[in-house]
Design a protein around this nucleic acid. Structure first.
Lengths: 244, 244
DNA sequence: CGGGGAATTGACGCTGTTCAATACTGGTGG
DNA sequence: CCACCAGTATTGAACAGCGTCAATTCCCCG
């Protein structure tokens, strides 16, 4: 009982480019199935060469790298609409692992068909390059945050970015949204220790800037949080992007 | 007096995929000229939408972001064979600025032709996605380095990565290579202060691990430097990649 | 009732920042 | 030819942001 692309709940979101009929019918062929996983499941492993590519449909996850001594760097958060496995599809292997944080369901594509995508559907190929460029752009921002911002600004930046991203997906109710990660995940994304992340979150809570507890994130004023994070709201707002 | 793609000195390098005759003839049409700039010249500006895309032919440069208070984060180093402007070509605007560190000459492409590239030359389109994926992969590594490594390991990682990269371009003579950057550039790439970068470089010099002075970098033993950097040599070695 | 994962909080100190002074270089104008 | 200057590299000293260690609490689950 899989979701038909015609009825895809993501397509209608304003944060994605509208899809032409031709593209839609191509996607229906391209999609070969669905993957449903429980929380904690590894979806892709760093260094592996998966035969399958995915687009997240429901649920949220993490992209991360593990270092020699077990240090973990979270590279990005996976949300509905995200394409997963581009590196495996285009290069030899993945540069990071992907893991489900909540229960997830993902559209499954056949890696071998990726090449026919580029040949027969150049627009979709262009879109894939777009996605890669957006990801590159984000990682540059993350690098800036980790390299050049204080702990308070860093945490503010991350929370605001997550909040706005979830907002564009239509998941924010009022001024709060479900954020099903652990403090350790955020710490590993920002290059901070768990303890200091916790204390920084407490400070933001005290200052009424952002409240994240029991898996829900509330942001009273995006503008104030942006001020603390030291970013302008529009440089943090993701562009409308293709859905694949 | 521009360089003809037939005679392109980069194409022969083993670090680039060989180019078919068809690809070669396409590149000759795609290339519309050359840009020659002096050291310090801005090539692309963050947030701008350049009508032109480039491939570095000679010389070296920097990709970087500037924050609100003038903080700078170097996002990558530009070397011969690097494609510059992908983000501008595929998204609305560049996510970072690009500047020439030395004198540079770059092949110039017309941004409007990018779309015909995807349509008429799917292999080249695929290659562009590949390049974007490689860049994404690198930024993930950089994020890991900045987020999770000590200053000594970080500097070692960067020097080793630069060294190996230049080595694959055939620029290393003996065990040393020209590295025309300032310590400030390296500091801004690694999220360190200039002072501490300087002291860390001095330590590596004392320990005979890496010597970088007067614009030349010498590495006696890649293995030892890799040990200090806490990486394996092959995870730091760039893949053979397409040249565009 | 017991156990394990996550969040929280305090104490302590190391790693890296900031401030500041010095030296060295090539370039410029008198 | 030399004084002067700006940019870069180097080094020392004081300080602080953040990491590490450790203890406690809360909560879910068996």
């Amino acid at each position: 009982m899989t979701v038909d692309c015609d009825a895809c709940p993501l397509r209608k979101r304003a944060c994605f480019d509208p899809m032409s009929d031709a593209e839609l019918s191509f996607m229906k062929k391209f999609k070969v199935g669905e993957l449903v996983v429980e929380p904690g499941t590894q979806i892709l492993l760093e260094g592996s060469n998966s035969p399958q590519l995915f687009t997240a449909l429901h649920g949220m996850g993490l992209r991360y790298k593990i270092g020699e001594q077990g240090a973990r760097q979270v590279v990005n958060f996976v949300m509905p609409g995200d394409f997963v496995g581009l590196q495996a599809g285009v290069m030899k292997e993945m540069g990071h692992s992907v893991e489900a944080t909540t229960a997830m369901t993902l559209c499954v594509f056949d890696r071998k068909e990726l090449w026919t995508l580029f040949r027969n559907n150049p627009e979709r190929g262009f879109d894939l390059a777009w996605l890669a460029a957006v990801e590159e752009n984000f990682l540059g921002d993350a690098l800036f945050a980790v390299g050049r911002r204080s702990a308070t600004a860093r945490v503010s930046w991350a929370l605001l970015r997550l909040f706005i991203r979830l907002s564009s997906l239509g998941l924010v109710r009022g001024n709060s949204v479900r954020l099903p990660y652990k403090q350790q995940d955020l710490a590993d994304a920002l290059g901070l220790s768990l303890v200091h992340t916790n204390k920084t979150l407490a400070k933001l809570r005290d200052r009424q800037l952002a409240q994240w507890s029991d898996g829900r994130l509330s942001v009273a004023s995006r503008e104030e949080l942006a001020t603390v994070a030291n970013v302008s709201l529009d440089e943090i707002t993701p562009p409308v992007r293709p859905l694949i």
